[in-house]
Amino acid sequence: MKQHKNKFILLLSMAAVIACNNAEKQTEEKQTAGAKLPSVEAYKQTIDGKATSLYILKNKNNMQAAITNYGGRLVSLLVPDTDNNMVDVVVGFDSVQQFKASTEPYFGATIGRYGNRIAKGKFTLDGKEYTLFTNNGPNTLHGGKKGFQDVVWDAQQVGDSSLVLTYLSKDMEEGYPGNLSVKVTYTVTANNELKIDYEATTDKKTVVNLTNHAFYNLNGQGSGTINKHTLWINADLYTPVDSTLIPLGKNQFVANTPFDFRTPTAIGLRVDADDVQLKNGKGYDHNFELNKPTGAGLNHAATVTGDKTNIVMDVFTQEPGLQFYGGNFMQSKNTIKGGGKDDFRTAFCLETQHFPDSPNQPSFPSTVLEPGQQYKTSSVYKFSVKK
């Protein structure tokens, strides 16, 4: 009788263990349901004699980031929605070859040496004029003909959650003076943040303005328009531009303009307003001068909420500016992850930065870096769900 009792207890214990394992498996499946990361194998290539790969970062909440060292690009970012399904909120491609062949060169990329535009591809330091390649009409955009988005970075993954990328931009590369040593660190934190730390040093006086050019859709990449996302930007001033998107020289108040996002507003609510600045940018493609923080630490720059998923992205930065780009030049020319197209205004960018054309605009914060100084700045993209 005692043996039967012990056997019955053992069977009950085994059943309990199986039930517990099944529950854990179901929970894990639910947490990882939805979007998946691209294949690592599709990112193994050789470009300019250097090996490319895909690096996967994750935290204990199942948030995952996929980053390739080709262009220091954020390829995918999986975050949970209100039902705890994973949503890929970053537009990208299934392979490194697709990035290389894309008509949109900046998807997810680390941008340098100089993010945004420099007028007529020229600037002067200590009386010497430097000439850059003009790749955006009469101006230089995002570093020039072969900016940081087209180089293969050296990569070192640190544990599950951090990736360090390094690159030496040699003296006069793309016309910029100085050997510039650059380090960019991506980290997925326990608080569902993607943290990006930028560092650089030079051996000759130069200009530097680094940023990340991820294209976001908080409803999931390939899910349609971003015009119903709500956007808040912590800025009383923005930077008006001419028809070639070069600053006119003086920032203006957002009040009573389509650029007033000081209260959360649908991105598309005023995008087609009769406004010369919107016509210049074919929509939003403008720098916002962030209000200065009252305390120490990172400045809360912006908040975006997806209208379908209720995913919230908060942007924090040490930079003085934020470029809001509404996907106005997306033309359905590229096949993105999952087989969809990069359709008009189906993604947005929030690029933390110094102001456009600062080397030619004395009233703007300086982007000059000198030998012995260290360029060091951080930005954070934090994800949560609307309650």
Rank of each mutant, 00 (worst) to 15 (best):
S76R: 10
Q26I: 13
G127Q: 09
I111D: 00
Q26E: 13
M86L: 14
G71A: 05
Y130A: 01
L141N: 08
M63F: 05
M63Y: 04
N59Y: 09
A51W: 01
E29G: 01
G108L: 11
R113A: 06
L141K: 06
L77A: 00
K36D: 14
Q45N: 09
S39F: 14
G147R: 05
T46M: 12
G143K: 03
K25E: 15
A33E: 08
K100N: 01
Q45F: 02
G49C: 06
K145W: 02
T27S: 13
Y114F: 14
G147E: 04
N69E: 12
L74D: 04
Q26R: 14
E129R: 10
D88H: 04
L78H: 04
Y55V: 02
L78M: 08
S95C: 06
V89E: 05
K122Q: 15
V89D: 04
K146P: 00
N62L: 06
I118W: 06
D48N: 13
T131S: 10
R117P: 00
N116R: 03
T110I: 14
E129W: 07
N21A: 15
N136P: 03
G34P: 02
G121E: 05
K44Y: 02
D150Y: 10
R117C: 02
S53V: 05
Q98R: 13
G71V: 08
N61R: 06
G72K: 09
Y70K: 00
K58A: 13
Y70L: 03
V151T: 09
Y130V: 04
P138S: 10
Q98W: 04
I111N: 00
K120G: 00
E28K: 12
A119H: 11
T131I: 06
L125N: 10
D88M: 09
A51L: 02
I67M: 03
Y130R: 09
N136M: 09
F123I: 03
G127S: 10
V87A: 05
H142Y: 03
Q97W: 10
Q26F: 07
R73F: 12
P80R: 11
V79L: 05
N69Q: 08
T27D: 11
F99Y: 15
R117W: 04
L54S: 11
G49N: 04
N139L: 01
S53K: 14
Y130P: 04
K122A: 12
Q98F: 04
E28V: 13
G112F: 07
M63Q: 03
V75W: 05
K30C: 01
A101T: 09
Q45L: 12
T103N: 13
P38C: 15
A109T: 07
S102L: 07
V89L: 07
T124G: 06
K44M: 06
T52Y: 12
A51M: 06
F99G: 00
